[in-house]
Structure formats: C-alpha cells, structure tokens
Design a protein around this nucleic acid. Structure first.
Lengths: 252, 252
DNA sequence: CGGACTGTTGATCAAGGTCAACCTCTGTGG
DNA sequence: CCACAGAGGTTGACCTTGATCAACAGTCCG
C-alpha cells in the first residue's frame, strides 16, 4: 500500500477511492532490498518508475575522478521518478541507505493510470513540479549559502518532508546516512560537516549521535536557513487547475 | 511559429503535421519584451506555461539578504515550464536578458494538447525530464567542480543547447549576460569569474569581449568539464516508450 | 582480537571571496 | 564634439571559509 504517497498527494488533492485502488494496483510489483543496494545504476536502463515505500535512498552522480554529488534523498512516498522512462539511460545512481521496500511501475502502467484519470495525471505533474522545486532550492543552498546554513536548510527540508508523509513527529526525525553523505549532498567535506554539526549540536539545535541526527529546536533551525521550503510553494491546488481536477470521469 | 521548440523535440520524436499545427495554435498568444523585463515574478501567479520564442532569459532565486542564485538560462524553444501552473505561486523570478518574444499558453490549452495527442504528452514529459537532468548536472557542477571546470561546463552546456535549436554554428555562440550573471549561476563571485574567463581566454579556448563570450575551441572546453551534457542522456526514444509514441491517433 | 567504517580534532593550506581602485565602453545631453 | 555618468570588467592586496592531511577514538562485526 503506497500509504505515504497518498499522504503526500493529499497536500495537493484528494484521490477518490477508485483512484486510490488504481494507484495501489499499479504498485503491486514490490521488492525488498538491503541497505547499500544499487536500485538504479548510472548508464543502466530505466524502464518505468520506482516508488519508495519504506526506508531511505539517495540519488547521486559522480565525476570520473570520484568526486560525488548527492542530488537528493529519497524518502517513503517518493517517486524516482515518474517520467524517468522517457530517458534512454539513467544519468544517476540510486542507492538504498537503509533496508527498503520499493514498488516498480512499468511504463505501460503509468500511461494507463494517467489515461484513465486526468486527476492522477495532474497529481504526477504536481509531483514533478515539487521535485523540481526541491532541486532548485538545493541548488540555491549549495550555490549561495554558508556551510552552516546549508546543513540547517537540508535538515529542515528533510524534516518537513518526513512530516508530509506522516513520519517523524513534530519535524523531528533520525537521519540514517553518514556525515559523508551529507557532505556530498551539500558540496562540503565530511570534516567540515562534522565540525558544523558539532556547532549546531553545542547550540542545542540538534542532537548528533552515532548513526543519527535528531532535530531538537525546529524554530531556531528555521532561523538559520533563510530559505522557504518547497512545500511552502505548493500547498493547495491553484485556480488554474481546478477545472481539470473537477472534471467528471469520462474514461473508457 | 515555435520553430526552435520543434527542432528541440525532434531530438526525441517527429511530430506529425497535425500535431505541429496543434502546437502552433497553442502558441498564438505572443508578446514582445525589452531586455531586463520581469516575465515571472517570485511569489506572483503562475497561470499556464510560457514558451520563449526569441532571445535569452534567466530564472533565478534570491535570499533575503540579496545573494542571488541563477537557476538556469532560458533559450529559444525552452518552456518555462509546462507544469508550472500546478504550483500556487512562483518560487523564482524570470527576467529577460535580451529583447524577447514569448508565447503564453494557458493551462486549458496544455491540458487540451496532451489530451488530444499522447505523443505531445510524451514530448512534454521528455522536456520535463530533460530540464531535470540539466538542473541535476548544474548541481553537480556547483557542488563538486572547481571554478574553472564550472565555467567550462556551463558554456559547453549552453553551446550544446544552442546547437539543438539551430542557433550558433558549430557550438559557437555569444553569451548575452554579464559576468555577474555567470557568477550567480555558478556560485562564484564576479571577480573570480573575470579571472577565470581571462585564463580560459589566454589559453585560446574562449574569446572574451565586451558583451559576449565566444567559444573558440570546443574540444578543449569539453576536456575541462569532465561531465556529460544532459543531451547525451536523452537522444532517441527509449524502448519503453515506443508503444506510446507509435499508438495511432484515436482522439476526437 | 583485529579490521573496517565513521566520526573527531588539530594543523596547515588553498580556492575563492571581499574590498577598492581603476579602466573602458557606451550612451546621453549640452 | 565634448563632458559626464553609469554599467560592466580588470587587477591587486588581503582575508576567510572550508579543503586537505593526518592521527586517533569509538563502534560494530566477524
């Protein structure tokens, strides 16, 4: 059951029971993997979309000399990504950070979904726009923020995303990655991430422990990262889309 | 006529004359603007998609204290962007860098297009995937490359994109922005961009002049930026999409 | 018990930022 | 035709952030 996906889409529109059934049907091909499994291989085939049901994963891209950039963290309810199959090969790697459960949705299934229900189509579009907005914020953080601000921003974003899918109470959650993962996401060195986390910790904003970071003070964390979180641009359906969402079902 | 858009989509699929007519019809609301016009205002409404027909524009986002990150440069044939109207308000600003001609496509028109022709829908998806790939590459550049590599990468990307839409012969083109624009795109200072351009120029790779940069040596520029360009992941339709693209027209 | 992995801390270094002066166009108005 | 203003670019001096290198410590495993 793609429970977390439904919770996320709910921020945008409510799916009818029928649409929910269609979605669940599309997610029936599932599999489990250990932490550290390559779910998508760079330059490998990309047939269909993957939906992460449980656990964390990470999308990254590496330069020939080994420098790595983590493009985003993938949380339960995240597609990775619905339109991927229009690319010939993957330009990135996806690795699980914890044990994960994933659904695999073949292209035909996606096309079928959006053909049957324009509202599901809109939901997928919304999800794409959401991902783009996150990616753009990420770029702003890496391009124009200090190390301190970057870390604050990323943890804030992750907290807000966890909350969206009903995980982590009160924007508090545990980050299952290493500090090197954080560093590679933020364009920093692992050493500097360690120092900065330590600083945030000594300021009482975070609790840093082996194998996990916990947000203690959401307010102050927010104050550090002076950048709106993607969700703040996306809640509620805009006027321009209403007639699409209200359109009565007219499919075959 | 969205000539440059057709040229770009051609890298992915050939549109039938009928589909081309639909697309042109959708682009009939056009306008012209001077350089430096705000085409999309941050936090402003987002009704429908804009298609840039002529000229250059720039999408950026600023922090409260004025630090600015240029998210991408928008070239003729670029949507900005087809699914934008699912967001409530814009999280970015779009400013023209030269005099521009743009088409405005209202949401209803887009929905109509993709409903009439699944192939146009696929084309839009492909375009979205393409944009995401560019954005991810941009993030890799800003997060993990040196100033020298970043500039080389960006100019290479722009050259390849200009070529895609039939502008700039042999990957040579003029960049109409300022060095500060480049700096804000790459997470650098204008001063350092100046120095680095000067270096690339003294190495005979670029020709830098007032109000324009020209690529002289595509080969060596490529060698500097050790990262594949987005287009290299996207040429040709992947197998998984064939049955969608081949589907005979069955619309009303 | 030993090794692998992760994180911590200190010392040193370099890439790139900041500041400021100056220069070179270009456009404008007298 | 010249004076001037303003934007963009260049150059040098100096400084800061964060990278690099290295040693070490805690933890988890087999």
């Amino acid at each position: 059951m793609p429970h977390s996906l439904l919770l996320k889409l709910k921020h945008f529109l409510d799916l009818s029971p029928e649409e929910q059934r269609h979605l669940e049907h599309a997610c029936r091909i599932q599999s489990r993997h250990d932490a550290g499994t390559q779910l998508v291989r760079s330059d490998g085939p990309l047939d269909g979309a993957m939906l992460l049901l449980e656990g964390w994963a990470m999308r990254s891209r590496s330069l020939p000399d080994g420098r790595r950039q983590v493009l985003n963290f993938i949380l339960p309810g995240d597609f990775c990504d619905p339109t991927a199959f229009v690319e010939r090969t993957a330009s990135y790697t996806i690795v699980s950070m914890t044990p994960v459960r994933v659904a695999h949705i073949p292209p035909a299934q996606i096309l079928d979904l959006v053909t049957r229900s324009p509202r599901l189509g809109a939901a997928f579009w919304w999800h794409e726009a959401y991902e783009s907005t996150m990616l753009r914020s990420h770029l702003v953080a890496v391009g124009r923020m200090t190390a301190y601000e970057r870390i604050a921003y990323l943890l804030r974003e992750l907290g807000s995303r966890m909350g969206m899918v009903g995980l982590g109470q009160d924007h508090k959650f545990r980050f299952p990655g290493t500090q090197t993962d954080l560093a590679d996401a933020l364009g920093l060195s692992n050493v500097h991430v360690s120092r900065t986390l330590r600083r945030l910790s000594s300021e009482g904003i975070l609790h840093v422990e082996r194998g996990g970071i916990t947000i203690l003070d959401t307010q102050r964390l927010e104050a550090c990262a002076n950048l709106r979180t993607p969700i703040e641009h996306l809640n509620g359906a805009p006027a321009g889309l209403q007639h699409m969402l209200d359109r009565p079902r007219n499919s075959a």
